[in-house]
Amino acid sequence: MAEANAGGTAVGQGSTASTFTVLVADDNEVAQRLCKRVLEKAGYGVLIAADGLQAVDIAMSQRPAMILMDVAMPGIDGLEAMRRIKEQIPTMPIVIASAHSMASDRERFLAAGADNVLSKPFRLADLIAIVAKLASAT
């Protein structure tokens, strides 16, 4: 975890003000690495949070352009983290990326305030498209 955090911070430090930065909140290290690798390759900045509380902290302190949020995380889950973040920064775009990928889950996440939903496992192009779409909107 410490390692992941350090990695995220390093990436964030490396980004510029103009860089579209994505906070990836996921407790699964493989998922963290995958998203980081793909998004950075596509030119986005990547911040990593390993659980819900971290996600809220980083969202507040670093103000990423958007958040890619897992749901099943220790501590507070992604939905709770999203609620807290949206409470502070209502305009923060949050995409729920969850392995809970039944149709009902999608509805549930959108109802909870998600701006978009990405089901795991995902095609790399879908991840890039979702982020790109939000990036172009800003």
Partner: peptide, 24 residues
């Protein structure tokens, strides 16, 4: 079912994503 599919999909996320990277 929900949990199992979640577990499988979580595991498959890495498998699918990284294998796609390698393939590309």
């Amino acid at each position: 079912l929900s949990i199992v599919s979640h577990e499988f999909r979580t595991a498959l996320t890495g498998i699918q994503g990284f294998s796609e990277l390698i393939r590309d």
